[in-house]
């Protein structure tokens, strides 16, 4: 909160009286456009441009995709399926789809909490007024997400090559006996993807927390310190609760991003080996563009992703968004 705002708040206080309670007797004679209605309409006016654009750019195509998900056929020879949900039924017997679903959830369960905790800890460290070289740390940790995907995938592939930097280093300190084929085995390949995601997105989330930390009340932290709370207690009992809206936001965004994960799966491993790192969105892309195009089926996959994200977001909101 800048001093500017604080001043204005203070100035506002003396005059901050509530509008008089409406008297039911005169209510009948009031014009249709009451203060409340006018304000509500203004509110709708604020929402309308963005909402309309989203309607046209997302919802109408989304509806078209839904209709598509009930059609079947290759290329442009699409006809309504019999029964209509047959593309969805098909998913249940698609071993590759099940594998991509499993992969995606492995990423989600391991990477998202790890990343958010790391980001929170980093942001809190950076918010320490006594920390030195603040700009340097912040810049270094955030920069990865400014890098385009090609370079990042190329760098990671080079680093995790058989005779690459990582194997050389591990061999050098004697942790392993022979080179590990990082991207050639399912488990290690998944590990590299998770590492890649952490590398690219931790700083991104950290920036959110930093921005949110600016808006929280610094004096509450000072007060807790004065009361003898240690750093951890202050962090957990004072800072985190105030960051709750932002933690909720980043959790939803990251869940959404992970369930729609495409870039890393595509650029780092091409989904291999043997589909063991392929994400659902990557599979959707394959079914649409790389294999014999089956857009009805692809649309069905996209709706499964949509429902999963929606359910998880709903759960997260219920857990985290109590207006108390």
């Amino acid at each position: 909160m800048s001093t500017d705002v604080a001043d204005r708040t203070r100035r506002a206080q003396p005059g901050a009286r509530k509008p008089p309670a409406p008297d039911p007797a005169i209510n009948r004679n009031r014009p249709w456009l009451t203060e409340g209605r006018r304000r509500s309409l203004t509110g709708w006016g604020f929402l309308l441009p963005a909402a309309l654009l989203i309607l046209v750019m997302s919802f109408i195509p989304m509806f078209q995709a839904f209709v598509l998900s009930m059609k079947t056929g290759r290329g442009t020879n699409l006809e309504f399926a019999e029964p209509l949900w047959s593309n969805y039924a098909r998913l249940l017997s698609d071993e590759v789809f099940k594998l991509t679903l499993q992969n995606t959830f492995i990423y989600l369960i391991i990477q998202v909490p790890l990343m958010l905790i790391l980001a929170l800890v980093l942001a809190n460290l950076l918010n320490d007024p006594h920390l030195r070289w603040k700009g340097f740390w912040r810049t270094a940790i955030f920069l990865p997400c400014a890098v385009s995907l090609v370079s990042y995938s190329l760098v990671f592939r080079t680093m995790f090559a058989n005779d690459g930097f990582v194997n050389d280093a591990l061999l050098g300190i004697g942790l392993i006996d022979g080179p590990i084929n990082w991207l050639g085995q399912p488990e290690t390949a998944r590990f590299v993807i998770i590492l890649g995601l952490l590398w690219r997105w931790t700083g991104y989330n950290m920036v959110f927390y930093l921005a949110a930390l600016q808006n929280i009340d610094q004096s509450s932290i000072e007060a807790a310190r004065m009361d003898g709370a240690n750093a951890w207690q202050t962090f957990w009992h004072v800072t985190v609760p105030q960051l709750k809206p932002m933690i909720l936001l980043t959790a939803i965004i990251s869940t959404n991003g992970t369930l729609q994960l495409f870039d890393e799966s595509w650029a780092l491993t091409r989904g291999g080996p043997a589909y063991s790192t392929m994400s659902m969105s990557h599979y959707l892309y394959e079914v649409s563009f790389l294999k014999n195009p089956n857009f009805g089926y692809a649309a069905a996959i996209s709706f499964v992703i949509l429902v999963l994200v929606a359910v998880l977001a709903f759960v997260q909101m219920k857990v985290g968004d109590k207006r108390d």
């Binding site: 190329l154 592939r157 080079t158 995790f160 090559a161 058989n162 690459g164 084929n181 990082w182 991207l183 050639g184």
Partner: peptide, 8 residues
């Protein structure tokens, strides 16, 4: 020799 990627 099996390697990880095309570049490699």
């Amino acid at each position: 020799v099996e390697v990880n990627s095309w570049d490699e």
